[in-house]
């Protein structure tokens, strides 16, 4: 194994062929140094894995204690650092990846290097942007990926570029899968479903796909669709339409909103799409519905 190291983009030649890797480190802290870990924004998606020690961190204003095998995952709009501005004694590994596009609304384009499909990238972006718990507890499988990354990067054997790109994809997938699963225990689907419903309502103007909804609760689309159907009687998309129309009816009662405003706010593509869906279900056009109340 190599000695502890910290590689920086533009400084370390190992990263030259991987412009999207901002930092990559295997770090050991033997004594506490002032200002060694100040709270600041990450430059990309930052994933840290704790191998030894106990770390007192602050992520987005919240204190967290991290223990060995814990992983933190932060987005460019989140701040992170040591709670007292320092690194505690221990060892950890981290990597910061800069996606081509990553907006706070969840829009994510990793870049040409990634083999993750466009659909899955959208799902990952969505999950990360809605995520409120940046700590993945006891995710030991990250360690192996970090070690493989390190080996590939320093040995530079044939095919190492491909391997590294793959390993980073794998790291992202492993972390995000764990993220969506840890809060959604299969023992309590009703609770999971209620949380999903709340997330959908809070982000109703988004064009949700089944993949995104399933990803958010840590299930495959087939299992997700089956569970939703058995639990609610609806397919996921019909369930979503129900929520959209329910919210739209409330907004229709407000005179100051135009039909287009309401349509877009509740996630329909256009006022026509809204009107036809609404009419199909209720028998009224939204305009008629509004009038019928007077």
């Amino acid at each position: 194994m190599n000695n502890p190291f910290i590689l920086y983009q533009e400084k370390s030649k190992e990263l030259e062929t991987f412009p999207y890797i901002i930092e990559f480190a295997n770090h050991k802290i033997q004594n506490i140094q002032l200002h060694s870990h100040q709270i600041k924004l990450s430059e990309g998606i930052k994933i840290c894995f704790i191998t030894e020690g106990k770390f007192d961190w602050n992520i987005d204003g919240q204190p967290y204690l991290l223990y060995p095998n814990d992983t933190s995952m932060t987005c460019p709009w989140q701040t992170m650092g040591g709670n007292k501005g320092v690194f505690d004694i221990g060892s950890l590994m981290w990597i910061t990846i800069k996606p081509q596009v990553f907006e706070q609304n969840g829009e994510l384009v990793l870049g040409d290097w990634s083999g993750i499909s466009e659909t899955d990238q959208r799902v990952i972006g969505k999950i990360l942007s809605l995520n409120k718990k940046p700590i993945l507890s006891r995710l030991k499988s990250c360690q192996q990926i970090f070690q493989n990354l390190e080996t590939e990067l320093f040995a530079q054997e044939m095919g190492y570029r491909t391997r590294i790109n793959h390993l980073i994809d794998e790291l992202l997938i492993t972390a995000v899968r764990h993220l969506s699963k840890q809060d959604n225990l299969r023992r309590d689907f009703p609770q999971t479903f209620l949380k999903l419903e709340q997330t959908l309502r809070e982000n109703l103007s988004d064009p949700w796909t089944v993949e995104e909804m399933a990803g958010l609760v840590g299930l495959g689309t087939t299992a997700f669709t089956e569970k939703v159907k058995a639990f609610s009687g609806f397919s996921p998309l019909n369930y979503l339409i129900n929520i959209r129309i329910s919210e739209a009816i409330k907004l229709l009662n407000r005179e100051d909103l135009s039909l287009t405003d309401i349509a877009l706010e509740t996630g329909f593509y256009s006022s026509q799409h809204f009107s036809s869906t609404f009419k199909k279900l209720t028998g009224y056009t939204p305009r008629e519905f509004r009038k019928s109340k007077d």
Binding site: G233, F234, N238, N242, I243, I245, S246, E247, I249, K250, L281, T282
Partner: peptide
């Protein structure tokens, strides 16, 4: 509970 959701769900299932 959300009254509109209950109404729309009723209508949807009925239909």
């Amino acid at each position: 509970q959300d009254p509109e959701q209950i109404f729309i769900t009723t209508l949807f299932i009925l239909k």
